[in-house]
Design a binder for these strands. Sequence first.
RNA 1: GGGCUUGUAGAUCAGUGGUAGAUCGCCGCCUUCGCAAGGCGGAGGCCACGGGUUCAAAUCCCGUCAAGUCCA
Length: 908
Amino acid sequence: MFSEDEYRLDFFVDEGFQRKKCEKCGKLFWTRDRARKTCGDPPCAPYTFIGSPVFRREHSLEEMREHYLNYFQARGHTRIARYPVVARWRDDIYLTIASIADFQPFVTSGLVPPPANPLTISQPCIRLDDLDSVGRSGRHLTTFEMMAHHVFNTQEREIYWKDRTVQLCDELLSGLGMDPMAVTYKENPWAGGGNAGPSVECLVAGLELATLVFMDLKAVPGGPIEIKGERYEKMPNYIVDTGYGLERFVWASKGSPTIYDAVFPDLVRKVADLAGVEHNLNDPEYSKIFAQNARLAGMVDLDEYSMKDLRAKIAGSIGISPEKLEKTIEPMERVYAVVDHTRCLAYMLGDGIIPSNVKAGYLARLVIRRTLRLMKELGLAAPVADLVLMQISRLDYPDWQERFSTIKEILDQEEQKYAETLEKGKRLVKKTAEHFRKMNQAIPLQEMISLYDTHDIPPEIARESAEEMGASVQLPDNFYSLVAKTHIRAEAKEAPKLVLPGKTELLFYEQPFDQVFEAKVLEVVDGSVILDRTLLYPEGGGQPADHGTLEKAGQVFRVVDVQKSGEVVLHKLERPGLEKGDHVTGKVDMRRRLAHARHHTATHLVHDSAKRVLGKHIWQAGAQKSEDRARLDISHYKRISDEELKAIELEANRRVMETVPVETRFLPRTEAEKLFGFELYQGGVPPGKQIRVVRVGSDIEACAGTHVTNTGQIGAIKILKTERIQDGVERIEFAAGEAAVRACQERDDLLGKAAGALRVPAEQLPKTANRFFEEWKGQQKEIERLLEELARARLKTLTAEAQDIDGLKVVVQRMGSADIEELLKAASLLAEQDYVALLGSETGKLVAAVGKSGLEKGVKAGSIIRAAAKLLGGGGGGKPDLAQGGGPDVEKLAEALKAGCEAMRAGS
RNA sequence: GGGCUUGUAGAUCAGUGGUAGAUCGCCGCCUUCGCAAGGCGGAGGCCACGGGUUCAAAUCCCGUCAAGUCCA
């Protein structure tokens, strides 16, 4: 907890603020109003702005954003452009959840200078935590813009701190026409993402408009300060992190019943019209219902409050029945949610997320499917793509307009996919329901979980169809938490990588083609030596380590692995023998190095070509190189066709033929981002202040790997195959340089062998193979037909030698080297004519069949076979009328048949 | 990254170790003035692929490929 000193600002004192304790929640807050008793935050205080706006006039979203950014620009802040909603510069979160996320971790840690200081930004953010409340609460959104001003203070230079921050906030609000008496600043320590600090929430008329965070702590185990159970210590740098809810400002300026009616009234109107839902806020009765709903919903946390209770309470306070309330607001709740969700999708897809079953793509699919369900409930037949495109055309991002057709294709495909999943689901439910209805049981919970978990059939839908079928289900209220439980597993914690002190100078960037270097052994750790300088590339960025040798006084030590740890490079040796202080001559295995370099540069080319051929939504999702091949994973929403693959291969090879120089240079991170954008981070986010930028023609990436100096050195690129490693991620495997030539040769060999086997030239292979296959199929049919005929023909011979055993016609015969099919045919024909048959072949196969009279007498084919096959050293079995078996001791066939014969007698 | 499920006829699926099936669709014939419906007959299967176990594998085991789905 923070002491009062942290909050007793000169600004508060000068302005006549008092520090008070909320009589309801006990939290401390600052106010100008001597009569105020509560902190101003629901549920301690109600919404009072609905119907009576807190600002002088109404602002649209665009007006409010401009007003805000201009205000801070006029006060010395630099306006910077928004970051994408996909946090590609982060490896810990998928979506941008706050404006400060743009600057974590390197700017906030002080490692990298901010793009401007102080700065102001309006950052679109996506949070899916409260998905279920969107539309219902009147205030929740999945997507919102967090307006902010940020200051990054250092020990050397303080720009401004708490006083100025609160003052700027206060004056911004007063300037918009807010009554200064109405605002409260509630003390609320903030912690998140490894940082923490004092913070105040700015509340007006029950609405939290802004949060002002003074981030000056970082998490340290055993640190002196405790906040929310974590230990922290002071940071040398300290940061003003503010967040102003753009949508809430707009809402406060309008005082409309819901935030949705304030933020996107035009789209709410359109969607309501499309769905045929009446929505007339000018009708005072109708408007009152929504206003009251929002006021009361604003007071509770929907997670903890049952919808039914809330509805009853609201209905009571307006004086209508809960049924009427529900009928009035439920369709609109869905309309609101659809409008919100489609805006969310516009941002997600516009910023390049590809729907998938994993990672950020899964979140996109989640929102898409939720939207489709809502639309279905509304009876809204329009394609979801149309609604999303409507959102996009409303937003001012020109590059998104270009992506219209891709986005439409993605959404249409998702819609179709979901329809198929549901269709399949319905059939499955039907089947399951029938099964359990027959058994006169309710469908067990386990089955319901499996339907949802494995086939995405929501239990509510499953119940509905099952009950239509006349089956009951077991469905507890805490269904989803039960599902979650089945997924809980102890997570394997990764051991923190040991960071060794010291520094190894990396020579391979400056001298990529030098082979020999002199160095000194700084340390020996577990059979690995640390050198003061090295030409050997340590594993990283999907490129394996170099190999080579270290030599001391004629002794040669092979280097079998090279790893980076902190700023030092560890060279793992095949055998021990080097000591601290030794001077060594190092040598790089250039063959391996060059093969890696070729594949690495080729990876950049294939990536760039894929982007040209498939579209701008292509992002690298992973990559791995080796000496003889490389693979590149890219985000793409469907399978890459053969034609596209050929086009990519050709494009990549064209860049090779153009002999483009490969440029590499180190740039300050912020500058590189400014110049080239986040497309730099295809291979993940490199740490550090300076990043190495590699440019190959039009492809520019942050990359620490070793490259050739000119694409011509790659020689050739041969794509070998594609694989779909996840929904939404395609893997392209290819070879470069010598490896490409060898790969082609291997394929030629295969082709040659295949053609040789059929004795045709390779060109005729497809045609011939096809012919062979067709002929083979035809012959299979012919064989079957002939077997049938043969069996019939033999029938006469076989029956001629029938013997009579206990009044049954019995045939026991050796059938030469006939196979099991032949025996089966013959035996079953005999059985049809009421014989008991036991047929054996010299290959050790036996078949027995029993006709009608035999069956009546209790003769079982299975027992006959078991008795006979035992003698052959094998086994057998089957049904009473037909059985088969065999064994390896073929020379005992005669005895076996005899034994079978005796079994017949015993059986009858 | 982890978990679960599924690949059988053109489609939807049955088949838990013993001669690969049903329904719809397709083709032919019958019935009918014609259509729909009905009756009779027929074509259509490397049971995803590759190994293994077994006398015997669509079925069991391992691997590969393809598809679906949930969670972080």
